[in-house]
Amino acid sequence: MSHPEKSCEDPTMPPALRVSGLSKSFVVHAHGDLALPVLHDVSLAVSPGECLALVGPSGAGKSTLLRSLYGNYRADAGSIRVRQDDAWTELVGAEPRTVLDVRHRTMGFVSQFLRVIPRVAAVDVVAEPLLRRGVEATEASHRAEFLLGMLGIPARLWALPPATFSGGEQQRINIARSLIVDYPILLLDEPTASLDAANRDGVVELICQRRDAGAAVVGIFHDTGVRDAVATRIHEVLPPASPAGAPPCVAKPS
């Protein structure tokens, strides 16, 4: 790939994630193969210790971009490369097991909503990524309980399946599950959307800790207070119809 680099990356720190020429459209076959272009020629790079905030109007494709980075949506063209084992792993067009390996070891994702698993206790939902990495069960539970405590989930809820929890509680379970592993790359889709102020501050604190410990973070944060607290750079996502006028990244106003 010899795409010209247009990003504002720090030359002393090689990026953890590098995207170039990414395009994505949806084709709805039930409506006469209607094509909905969403992303066109997106390029960005994120280094360890950076938090890139995706901004843009509703419908501009911020979530689509984030989901494409995670391999949840299939890119039409371009490149998404992830730094892993001191080498680049290309995710566009990769085999499913390559994407799963990157998700297992390198890239975590916090979605807006928890996908509830019937009958599984909150503490086990959170501990699962650790168990998958071979951490012993008691140790995994202890770490899950610690994180749940930090996020303000009362201990009486830990043994219950989260299906009946409030939206804010479910979201914190989701965050705990994704942050229990020290992923080098974190993708966050509105991680504080349904949280009250106290719980929001707890989540902001956790994200900042991860960022400062060297995680490369990309996120959507509608709350400007949260964005100001966690983001080190802004990336503007333009609606599909508008002309590509703005630079792909601008310094965060302080």
């Binding site: 709805v28 076959h29 039930a30 989901r67 391999g71 949840n72 949506y73 499913p96 994407v99």
Partner: peptide, 21 residues
């Protein structure tokens, strides 16, 4: 064919889109 979450969240084929919908 593909990753489970990708096939279910971003189905490409008309038949898969119909199944998911």
């Amino acid at each position: 064919e593909g990753l489970t979450d990708q096939v279910l969240d971003d189905p490409q084929h008309a038949y898969t889109q119909m199944l998911v919908a």
